[in-house]
Design a protein around this nucleic acid. Sequence first.
DNA 1: CTCGCAATGGTCAATAATGGTCAAATTTAT
DNA 2: ATAAATTTGACCATTATTGACCATTGCGAG
Lengths: 154, 154
Amino acid sequence: MANISELIERYIKNLLQESQGDSVELQRNELAAQFRCVPSQINYVLSTRFNIENGFVVESRRGGGGYIRIVKIPLEQQGDPAVQIYRLVGEEINQSQAENIIKRLAEEELITLREAQIFRAVIDRNSLRLDLPWRDSLRANLLRVMLAAVFRQS
Amino acid sequence: MANISELIERYIKNLLQESQGDSVELQRNELAAQFRCVPSQINYVLSTRFNIENGFVVESRRGGGGYIRIVKIPLEQQGDPAVQIYRLVGEEINQSQAENIIKRLAEEELITLREAQIFRAVIDRNSLRLDLPWRDSLRANLLRVMLAAVFRQS
DNA sequence: CTCGCAATGGTCAATAATGGTCAAATTTAT
DNA sequence: ATAAATTTGACCATTATTGACCATTGCGAG
């Protein structure tokens, strides 16, 4: 466990603790230099430890003045219906299953009516214009990122 | 943010705020001198941040007494905002164009912050997982159906 | 009035400064 | 021995900065 990825992970989580808010901003090259690793290792750490399943969202920008921002999503309790529903989606989902989930979300008032309309528009097979099974996979993906977007606020 | 373009952007937006109206006038060389950059960088900032997707129009004049006028175009002004935006989207759209449009919709309070997050999540290239040019086409399609979903009700 | 120059702004392509992806190689865990 | 996780590096993509060269406008000198 003199494992660089873990060191980087802890370093970033430390930064997050120290920064009053719930996000930190850093530079990939700088961090890589600090830990004497290749820059792409930073991406590895981000994708394995700071992904959405772990409750983080990463935003970044390339080019001059580029940055990587890591945002911690205030993780609700285990029993949170939102989280359960998120898990329900899975890797593939068909339109009617998705509609059921959206209906439930609206009923539980986790999303507004307008938001429900947006969700429905997106997961509609006519919007997706792909053949199965790619369509079901794209739908699951989109539903998951939409849910993440919503749950991300508090 | 050792990023001059961003500083210039904020400076101009500040000017716009302070000037009661919705336009400001400035001189390219002067501004460039103020920020110690080459004059053409001003054009770069204008074309990336004050373009039509972002809701701005730039007028200018060369020669003695030349100037650059930046005008903010509020959406409500010319007819149905939905229709205008719809046109802006077109048959294909890339991520950054789409982000500009979403930013603007939120600024104009035509969509909520949460809705903007949903939109952004959907149009993200990582969510779409398709190669170009199909990705840009799917993105345009999804953006259009989302807009329709939102505007249908108002 | 006309020509020429000074004072502006515009374009475009090269280069710099970042970050991203993917898969092979290596190491560690089961 | 396999499978999983980590480490690396070659190549790619995006955004910003710079500078050489171009275009337009206003103003005087003839």
